[in-house]
Amino acid sequence: MCPRGRGLVENEEQYENKKMKSIVVEEQEEEEEEGSGSERETGFVDLNQDMLHNVLKFVDMVTLGRAACVNKLWSKVALDDRLWAPFIIYRRRGLPWAFHRMILRPPPIDPQVFSRQIEPWV
């Protein structure tokens, strides 16, 4: 995937990228130590906007909020009002948003465990 919006403030972006890469490398190393899931390195190719919308229909509010911080495309898709509507309706009815999550019942997928702990953002 070609990152867009590059070249405006090259220095800071490079710094960011370097930081990202070091994180990714660390994760990969630890994953290899685990000896599992090396095929996952390639990740997804790409889901287009519609399919991403379809996927984000099934995540809970917390994940949706985080999805908005992934990149520009994700941000655009995740900030769609239609995706937030269910949570607003549940709130209006006085139901906790966790209720929404229970109804959707995402099927359990094999947890892809990294041994590295990601620090919560301060």
């Binding site: 960011e16 990228n17 997804f44 889901l47 999805a67 992934v70 990149n71």
Partner: peptide, 13 residues
Amino acid sequence: VRKFFGLESDFKP
């Protein structure tokens, strides 16, 4: 998520 989808952040600083 970025790693899972093979994405990079393309936000402006």
